[in-house]
Structures are given as C-alpha cells and as structure tokens.
C-alpha cells in the first residue's frame, strides 16, 4: 500500500506542490473578494495567513517521522513545504504591518519590542530567513554537513511560532492546546531513543 503510494507520488513533481500550496492563498483572496472572510477582514486575513504558515511548518516536520514510521517518502517535497511556510509567514507579517497596524510604523515598532508574543513571532520569522535563503541546491552543496545543522533552526522556529499563536489568545483555546501538543510530539520524535532507537 505504502509502496504503491510512493510509486504514484513519483509522478507528482515538486513544482506541483508549490502550485497546490498556493491554494490556501487563493482561498483567502476569494473569501476577501466575496465577503466570506467575515466582518473583520483584517483579522480574518492576518489570522488565516498565520495559521496556514503554521500548518506548513508543522507539515514539514511530519515528513521525517512519516518516512521512518510508515516508509511513506515525501522527502522531495520538503523544500517546497518549507518555502511555502516561509511565504505564508512573510505574508502574515505583511498583513500585520500593513492591514492591521495600517503602516503606523512607530506604534508597530514599539509594540514589537514591548509585547512578548510579537517578539516570539518575529523571532520565529527571523530564524526562518537563513533557512529560506539556503533552500537551494548550491547552498546544500556548499554548506555540506553545516546545512543540516543550520536547518535544525526550524525546531526553535516552530516552537516560537506556536508560543506566539497561544500567547496572543485571551484564554488558550482547546485548539491552541491541540497545536501545542502536536508540535511538542513532532519535536519529541526528533530526539533519538524517545520513540524508537534510531538516529537522526
């Protein structure tokens, strides 16, 4: 069953994943134009972009455990998924500065340094910048083993991202706790010996 799935996936080029990854954006644009985004389109757009970014970040973290636990091989889509996560998180930031803060740079900047949850969010984004910049074959070749070490920055980035998401809530919702548990589980899988004695 998994072997058949892997064989089928061989016919899906990573380029298609980029295209599929733009569907959430198309959906948000459609909701905005049709009025379905709700009576507060600013928050609707901003929160949806952040949530999609989180889905892609967490999605990227499921690829290795999936391979290890089920032999389903999605490795060649990981770069697309990671870059899509970066793309949506960048748009989330743009939505905050432009739509939410209305380009009130001074208020945005003072909020940014004073508010822990914003600091967490922007730190997560900052950690993702070098990862996005080195998401190309040339960088993988040039950095060798350093590339893998560098890309472990995605672990703190996703932790910061989830903390940012939970911290902005007035009271942490059940959905928030589900995210925290899911990301904690995905990160726990990284530590060898915790699930099964393998390395990586």
């Amino acid at each position: 069953m998994i072997a058949r799935l892997n064989a089928t996936l061989r016919r899906l080029p990573p380029g298609a994943v980029y295209l599929l990854g733009l569907l959430p954006l198309a959906w948000i644009v459609w909701l905005t134009l049709s009025g379905g985004i709700g009576v507060d389109p600013v928050k609707g757009i901003e929160h949806r972009l952040g949530k999609v970014g989180l889905w892609f970040l967490a999605g990227g973290l499921t690829i290795t455990p999936l391979l290890r636990l089920t032999r389903l091989n999605l490795i060649r889509y990981r770069r697309a998924i990671g870059l899509l996560a970066f793309f949506y998180i960048a748009l989330h930031l743009v939505a905050w500065v432009w739509l939410d803060m209305g380009l009130l740079w001074r208020q945005a900047a003072s909020d940014l340094v004073k508010r822990p949850y914003l600091v967490l969010g922007i730190s997560a984004f900052a950690l993702l910048i070098p990862l996005a910049l080195t998401s190309n074959d040339a960088s993988v070749r040039r950095l060798r083993a350093g590339w893998r070490r560098l890309h472990r920055l995605v672990y703190p980035a996703v932790l910061l991202g989830v903390a940012h998401y939970l911290w902005q809530m007035k009271v942490i919702s059940p959905e928030g706790w589900t995210w925290a548990a899911a990301v904690a589980a995905l990160l726990a899988l990284r530590f060898p010996g915790l699930i099964r004695p393998s390395r990586g």
């Binding site: 905005t32 009576v39 507060d40 389109p41 600013v42 757009i45 739509l99 939410d100 803060m101 209305g102 009130l104 208020q107 003072s110 909020d111 004073k114 508010r115 822990p116 949850y117 911290w167 902005q168």
Partner: peptide, 19 residues
C-alpha cells in the same frame, strides 16, 4: 500588557482603512 490601546480598528471601515 500584550498590545497598545493607543489606537483601534473600526470594524466595517474596510481593508485599507487607517486605525
């Protein structure tokens, strides 16, 4: 503690309205 109260967004003002 987590956000400024200096300005507000008026619901219904539109996507690109100023605070």
């Amino acid at each position: 503690p987590r956000w400024s109260q200096a300005s507000e967004r008026r619901i219904g003002a539109g996507l690109f309205a100023a605070r």
